[in-house]
Design a protein around this nucleic acid. Structure first.
Length: 420
RNA sequence: GAGGGUGUAGCUCAGUAGGUAGAGCACUGGGUUGUGGUCCCAGUUGUCGCGGGUUCAAAUCCCGUCAUCCUCCCCA
């Protein structure tokens, strides 16, 4: 007999840690909601070709990290490795792009990448993302970035930084790309890196090895070769961010792993996660819609890693999602009392109070211990003696004080005590 | 995909001239026949990651494998 284990590289989140994950996810999503983004719930898998064409065949994500399989109908489908392609597909399929623009959507859910697991790098990851489609306005770029920033701040994160750059567009990037390739071909690089220089030269700029960095010190940078229009766009984005009070540092070597990015690209970086430092990132993707068969519409969005943001919050020692699992704990003494307390617990729950009860044959001591462990503020203790008086004992678990309360007054008394 | 570290109780970990296992925490019960968080006592929990090899004998040595962590790579 073999014991089952979770699939490789995929964490199980259990209480109480799981509550923190939910808090992170909800806090980030709330930031999007406040900025007028509407929720989309989309398939977890899509036609494989959607990602191949949308994300880019040459990317690592598509070429070696996808969970691809053939379904019973013989179709090749893939567990989504990122969110934008699926959102674009849905927007085109349902004609949202023919309504009022921009289309502002947000999503949250699981994504899958077949990578070597590592701290902060999982094969199934939870992400919150937004997409704003159809308006190429630098103010919108700034809004998207500001939404992410607001989400992080709402969690109390402080130890992150925002890196920003512009990747140009179809009018200036091809020219720059060639110039960069020329530069790279002249360098004594290893074979692996040379290959990368041919496929995606921009990514070579991001090499971490010091000796390579040295070689690249004088490499031409995209930001110095932007078309006038892209330059103008970039300057305006920065101006808006400054106006919004969002701090950023320019990183002209910032690279995004997906092919579709144009102009604005950004990444939120945190140093508390080990080798994986990106907690969220995104950018503009003009041209993606058309590439997927839609209209020529621009778009900008981000994906924020919930798992990694949680790690960042832990690294900063933030108390996220530490709320006790219940507010009131019921301790029945004997069978008759249990019958009553079960009902009392249900009534309190109906009134919006979070309540648990000592089930099983726990002794009083054990039940009180459970009450303490539950984190509840109050315990409702009752035995035959109390019920004869039509009362229960209400104990404040913080200071240990206790008093008899008539059953009719219990709800209001509990609410007062919890509010106090 | 490449390199390295680690796998012993639910958790954190002890356990080398090879002799089939321990501590703390946790959990359960009791001290307190109706009161938790402190204290005291008692008790439960192990395929020593898995498989094979060497040996009279393997948690301990060897090989493989899986998992995990770290680095490269890549990204959220």
């Amino acid at each position: 007999m073999t014991a089952f284990t979770a699939p490789r590289g995929i964490p199980d989140y259990l209480p109480p840690e799981s509550a923190a994950l939910l808090t992170v996810r909800d806090t980030l999503a709330e930031a999007a909601r406040r900025a007028g983004y509407g929720y989309v719930e989309l398939p977890v898998f899509e036609d494989t070709a959607l990602f191949a064409r949308g994300v880019g065949e040459s990317t690592d994500v598509v070429s070696k990290e996808m969970y691809t399989f053939t379904d019973r109908g013989g179709r090749s489908v893939t567990l989504r490795p990122e969110g934008t392609a699926g959102v674009m597909r849905a927007v085109i399929e349902h004609g949202l792009d023919r309504g009022q623009l921009p289309v502002k959507l947000y999503y949250t859910g699981q994504f899958f990448r077949y990578e070597r697991p590592q701290a902060g790098r999982y094969r199934q990851l939870l992400q919150v993302g937004v997409e704003a489609i159809g308006v190429d306005d630098p103010a919108l770029d700034a809004e998207v970035i500001a939404v992410a920033d607001a989400g992080y701040r709402a969690l109390g994160l402080t130890g992150y930084r925002l890196e920003l750059t512009s990747l140009g567009d179809s009018t200036c990037r091809p020219e720059y790309r060639e110039r960069l390739q020329e530069f790279l071909r002249a360098l004594p690089l290893d074979e692996e890196t040379r290959r990368r220089a041919e496929i995606n030269p921009l990514r070579v700029l991001d090499d971490k090895r010091p000796e390579v960095r040295e070689l690249l010190a004088d490499a031409p940078l995209m930001v110095d070769h932007l078309s006038p229009e892209c330059r103008e766009h970039y300057e305006e984005v920065k101006e808006h961010l400054t106006g919004l009070g969002v701090k950023f540092t320019e990183n002209p070597r910032l690279v995004r792993g997906l092919d579709y990015y144009t102009k604005t690209a950004f990444e939120f970086v945190h140093d508390g996660l080990g080798a994986q430092s990106g907690i969220g990132g995104g950018g503009r993707y003009d041209g993606l819609m058309a590439q997927l068969g839609g209209q020529e519409l621009s778009g900008i969005g981000f994906g924020l890693g919930v798992d990694r943001t949680l790690l960042a919050a832990r690294a900063e020692g933030l108390a996220v999602g530490d709320e006790a699992r219940c507010e009131v704990y019921c301790v029945p003494l004997g069978q008759a009392a249990k019958r009553q307390l079960v009902r009392i617990a249900a009534a309190l729950r109906g009134a919006g109070v979070r309540v648990d009860l000592a089930y099983g044959g726990k002794g009083l001591k054990g039940a009180m211990k459970a009450a303490g462990r539950s984190g509840a503020r109050l315990a409702v203790v009752a035995g035959d003696r109390d019920l004869e008086q039509d009362e229960v004992q209400l104990k404040d678990l913080r200071d240990g004080s206790q008093r008899a309360v008539g059953r009719a007054e219990l709800l209001t008394t509990v609410k007062e005590a919890l509010a106090g």
